[in-house]
Amino acid sequence: MSNYYKIAIALAVSTFAIGTTEFVPVGMLTDIAQDMHVSTGMIGLLVTGYAIAQAIGAPIATSFVGRIARRQLFAWFMMAFAVLNLLSAIAPTYGILLGTRALTAVVHGVFFATASVYLTKLAPVDKKGEAASWLFGGLTVATVFGVPFGTYLGEAVGWRATFAVVGLLGVFGWLGVITQVPKTAAPLVTDNQLAGIITVIRHPKISLTLLMATLGFGSSFVLYTYIRPYLQQVTGVSTAGVVGVLALYGAFVTVGNVIGGRLANRQALGVIAGILVAQIVVQLLQLLLLPRPGWYLVGIALLGLVAFMGNASLQSRIIMTTTELAPAHTDVASALNVSALNFGIAGGSFVGNAVMSYAGLQMLPLVGAVIGGVAVLVVALLRRIN
Rank of each mutant, 00 (worst) to 15 (best):
G310E: 09
V306L: 10
I385W: 10
R384Y: 12
L305V: 12
L382N: 13
L284I: 09
A359P: 03
N353A: 15
A301Q: 03
S357P: 00
A333T: 09
V332L: 03
T322H: 07
H329F: 07
M356E: 13
L314N: 05
G304Q: 03
L284H: 02
S334W: 04
A326F: 02
V338A: 12
F343H: 10
A301T: 07
L382H: 08
R383L: 06
G348W: 00
L289H: 10
A301W: 00
G310F: 04
L314Y: 10
V376I: 14
A335P: 08
V281W: 08
T323L: 10
G299L: 01
L287G: 04
V338F: 01
R383N: 12
L377H: 05
I319N: 01
G373D: 07
L366E: 08
I300A: 13
S334L: 07
G299F: 03
N311L: 14
V282W: 05
L381A: 15
L325D: 06
A326R: 01
L287P: 02
L287F: 09
S339I: 05
M309Y: 10
N311Q: 12
T321Y: 05
F308L: 12
S316H: 09
A375Q: 04
L289V: 06
V332N: 02
L377A: 14
L303E: 09
F308N: 08
L297T: 14
I345K: 04
A312T: 14
M309D: 11
Q315R: 07
M320Y: 07
N353Q: 14
Q362F: 00
V281E: 15
I345N: 12
G344R: 05
G310M: 07
L325R: 13
L325Q: 11
V374R: 01
R384A: 12
V367E: 02
L366Y: 06
N337G: 05
P291M: 12
D331K: 04
I385Q: 15
